[in-house]
Amino acid sequence: MPALLEVRGLTTRFRSSGGTVTAVDDVSFDVAQGETLAIVGESGSGKSVTALSILRLIPTPPGRIEAGQVLFEGQDLLTLDDAGIRAIRGSRIGMIFQEPMSSLNPALTIGLQVAEPIVEHRGATWRDALTRARGLLDRVRIPDAAQRLAAYPHQFSGGMRQRVMIAMAQACEPTLTIADEPTTALDVTVQAQILDLLKTRSEETGSALVLITHDLGVVARYASRVAVMYAGRIVEIAPARRLYRTPQHPYTRGLMQSVPRLDSDTAERLVPIEGQPPDLGRLPQGCAFAPRCRVVMPRCRTERPVLAQIADNHAAACFHHA
């Protein structure tokens, strides 16, 4: 089956007074129809920029997508004209942002905002779109949907607003939904509800899901495949189970060891990853993780390892597996 989304060699740079920063560096991955791919990494590892680059939502200047292809259903999104990319956004690819408190327009009612993509892409009348919006709010389990259409965002809690965002993103039944840290700003108790909802809604509409997160617990439960990013690059990509059982890259292993597990019977100590995340403006010459790596070799400091296949569906960028 051909991939729904193929990202090839995506490179996005930001220019600032302090020089050029490569936020996303030669990133490639695929998303198959209906699957859930998680992109994990710490803050500043380039996962959000990757997501924004796919829909060309990088503010230019200072940002610029400098190289690569984003093939969506065989079409390169990076070469489309403005009208072309607009026809994809919200219609074929839905996007959910991190901050539900600020990603709804405070001056418009919920109904109008959920109906907007339907009017924009399906050419529906506002009346029809609002009727559809009511159904969408029902399906994201907002009680009293008919009444809530006329409410304003400030009358909703964070979790409710994120439900509204999900309804908006999936209003046109996109084949791909990108969720950029959809639960980071929410209470822990609400997080699971939102993720479950996102998952079931994606299954209902047959949409593939790219889930961007720094929470490995989220990944384990919801993702079928995982890409781990570090300093703008993918350092390991594997099916979720496999990545948990046999992480290959030292960074992934470090991540696994630094997360408490309920199922471990021994009283293992958590092992933190030493050092600081790298400054993207001044990356070391070799492997970006080398300064923090426990198994670093002389070669790691001079050469940069490429992402190489080490087993079926499992690739890592480390000389220990080359």
Partner: peptide
Amino acid sequence: MYVHAAQSIGAKSRRIVWRHLLPN
């Protein structure tokens, strides 16, 4: 974010200006 969100659902510039910028 809501202007970014409007862009992410493919809204035209004219609509973003009228519906998302001006009221605010």
